[in-house]
């Protein structure tokens, strides 16, 4: 078929905004991600110092020990701007919704073996508090970090973690009762198994350097927790024991982590590639927080894996090291 449409054709004066063109060249249109990200944050001529932090400007790169010649060197491989982000999540929540529906409508929760159900509740429900901590930490990174390319994904990450906390809550309510949440909270507050992890999270709350916080939360903690809990434990071990329904209920987390990881890797890689000093700083931070996270997660892994926990964790740490090596950080 042939077509030859004539319409009113107008030659535009420019393809995109000058600040975007200074970065990508002015000879082509920019993507929505680029126009919605580059240079959005103010960098100059702030009027007043924050009363809550008079040592710094409102946005101030010196809040972090990481130094970048250009903070817009970071790029989210998912190219999330708000529209792309919500559309992606809307799709995922749709799947999640239909998974919850499926489990509920076919009474699969009731069909779970009792011990399995208990393990799942013991393991997953307290994790809602961990996700809540991640929500706070990413809010902090977004607020005190520098440059939209770095901070923007953090607000998405923050709200994702809130969403995950809410999904975990729903898992609890679906497999158990409101009391399940109270029990989990009690465990989180006082069971030995959880204290290492809670201390980790609370300690992260007082980390002031936004990039170090990024490392503590998004790189180290999530980097061990998700593969350990949602991949190794839920998808592999529990599903094999008849816990397919549980794997359905946590599909969101698995998929989400698979996607998010790419962004974390890209961020670490960019920062490490910038300078030897950054690389050294990152290696120090990552090693420190990884070791703390591993220690904190071991008793948690035991809830589901008992004696198998050490090996599983070791595996996960191993994979983590390999992954970060790829991102340019030798551990």
């Amino acid at each position: 078929m042939h077509i030859d449409l004539r319409t009113v054709s107008i030659k535009p004066l420019r393809h995109t905004f000058d600040h975007v063109a200074r970065r990508i060249g002015g000879d082509k249109p920019a993507s929505r991600y680029q126009e919605g990200t580059f240079d959005l944050q103010a960098t100059d001529n702030f009027h007043y110092r924050p009363t809550w932090d008079p040592q710094h400007e409102i946005f101030d790169a010196s809040r972090s020990a990481i130094r970048m010649a250009d903070w817009y060197a970071f790029k989210d491989p998912r190219q999330f701007y708000y529209g792309a982000y919500t559309l992606a999540r809307a799709k995922q929540q749709d799947t999640a919704e239909s998974n919850f529906d499926f489990v509920e409508s076919r009474g699969l929760a009731a069909d779970l073996p009792v011990e399995l159900r208990d393990t799942v509740l013991k393991l997953l429900v307290p994790l809602r508090h961990v996700a809540w901590g991640a929500n706070m930490n990413n809010a902090a990174i977004c607020a005190y970090g520098y440059g939209t390319a770095f901070t923007q994904p953090c607000i998405y990450q923050s709200m994702d973690q809130l969403g995950i906390a809410q999904y975990l809550t729903r898992v609890g309510l679906l497999l158990g009762d409101v009391e399940v949440l109270d029990d989990a909270k009690a465990a989180w507050m006082s069971d030995d198994a959880w204290q290492g992890l809670r201390r980790y999270v609370e300690d992260s709350f007082v980390v002031k350097d936004p990039f170090e916080l990024y490392v503590a939360q998004n790189v180290a903690l999530d980097g061990l927790l998700y593969p350990l809990v949602f991949e190794a434990i839920v998808d592999d071990v529990l599903a094999a024991k008849g816990g397919t329904a549980v794997a359905m209920l946590t599909q969101f987390m698995t998929d989400w982590y698979g996607e998010t990881k790419k962004w974390v890797d890209a961020t670490v890689k960019t920062a490490a590639a910038e300078s030897a000093a950054n690389k050294a700083q990152l290696e120090k931070w990552i090693a420190h927080w990884r070791d703390r996270a591993a220690v904190a997660l071991l008793p948690v892994a035991r809830i589901a894996l008992a004696d198998g926990a050490d090996a599983a964790l070791e595996d996960v740490v191993q994979q983590f090291n390999t992954r970060l090596a790829k991102a340019g950080v030798a551990l």
Partner: peptide
Amino acid sequence: AIAAIGKYEFA
């Protein structure tokens, strides 16, 4: 005086 955390004086 202004409410602030720490010293809040600028030229």
